[in-house]
Nucleic acid binder design. Structure first.
Lengths: 130, 130, 130, 130
DNA sequence: GTGGTCTAGACCACT
DNA sequence: GTGGTCTAGACCACC
């Protein structure tokens, strides 16, 4: 569980950290119930501000991905909070539209996008298999 | 060519406008060589500030999507500037990873993502067919 | 004497035309005393607005490069108006500074700039030799 | 790092500022990784609008000369983005042509241009030596 | 008519 | 504290 952070990217660091943690869970590398590194420990490892780590954990809790127990630490949620799937589908749809348009303007065909997606799915399943 | 803008969204207005225009071109609704509405006209239609439209046009020119001729107006590029396809593929790959992870955490399966993509491709081609 | 104009460039058309004419004179392809194409003829050839050609001729006259004789046409100046050489040197110096800095930031060494300059001098003399 | 700006010149202020910063980097007076003055600070020093400074910084980022980190500031790029050198050479060639023609029409010989260039190269290297 | 620049000043997000 | 966005309104150059 050592996320990769790129402080130069325009994407906020706390968002990058959230995504890394979510990726780790989706890929099965971090399991429900598992204890995440403490705010300070994570901040030290990544050489970022503890406030930034705290913010990431706070937002993850808000999304129902983790649960913080006072004096104990931050744990990956056991039960998933019932997510609003309809909303998720709409948002994913929008991002996909954005990808297709961007691809077009950069000389990438829809078929290539489809192949890329298949590749990424395979890749994600592979880490889960481990 | 009447983009839809949502000023309440966190996404900057000028980015939304850029995406709407790129979508319109990718879908074939706006063709190469075509003259876009003037900065002032577009600003009036969308009820936003002319500077915001100008910013969108400027960035699109930077991307090679449009060409502005002083005193004439802003036109959709005829020839595409040779895009860095390798870089595009890497970036698209990253966005797809993000989608898959997000989908997982919101109860959407990879198959559903695949179906969504197919749906969006069909939708884009439909507008082009017209 | 058929200048090349690129309407898509950000550089104003009338400036481009001025430069083409000056280049033609500097290279010896157009000689002092020679009659330039009329405003209308030039405009037709280049497919640009006659006002734009007129503006170029007007500015060239202002610089002492051409002389317009009412009812006769526009001629290349025989005698050079005494130019302000000191000022010219300062301005050229500034442009050279700009080139060197730009070159640095684009991976081009000063030696390469020097070689480029020598090449361009040779090229200009060649056309003059013809 | 205190650029000189001339608001009366026809050259846009933000372009002048960009060039001053690039000159400072090319001359070695400002080094990779260094933090530039904040937008507000620079605006105060130069007595120009913060938006104008922001525009200069934004365009420099676009060119890969600086990197901005939200909430931190704007830094000089460490690694140069691989520039398109071939294109750079062509463009520099064109500017050199323009200089030679301009020089001719203002009574400045090619030898003098060559000497000017050598002088500017020396000048740039001098600041770097410090 | 067109786009381009600049100013003044407000509000927001990130660290 | 930092940069980013947006508005309102003025002025200029080009066609």
């Amino acid at each position: 569980m050592l996320p990769r952070i790129n402080p130069t990217k325009s994407e906020p660091i706390y968002i990058q950290l959230m995504n890394e943690i979510k990726y780790s869970i989706a890929g099965g590398m971090t399991e429900p119930g598992e204890l995440l590194p403490s705010v300070r420990e994570m901040a030290l490892k990544l050489r970022i501000n503890p406030n930034t780590v705290a913010r990431a954990y706070r937002e993850l809790e808000h999304e129902g991905v983790v649960i913080t127990r006072a004096g104990k630490g931050v744990f990956v949620s056991e039960a998933r909070r019932n997510p609003d799937k309809r909303r998720a589908l709409v948002e994913i749809k929008n991002v996909l539209d954005g990808i297709l348009v961007d691809a077009f303007h950069r000389g990438v065909s829809v078929e290539e996008v489809r192949e890329l997606l298949d590749g990424r799915i395979e890749n994600l399943n592979k880490t889960r298999a481990k």
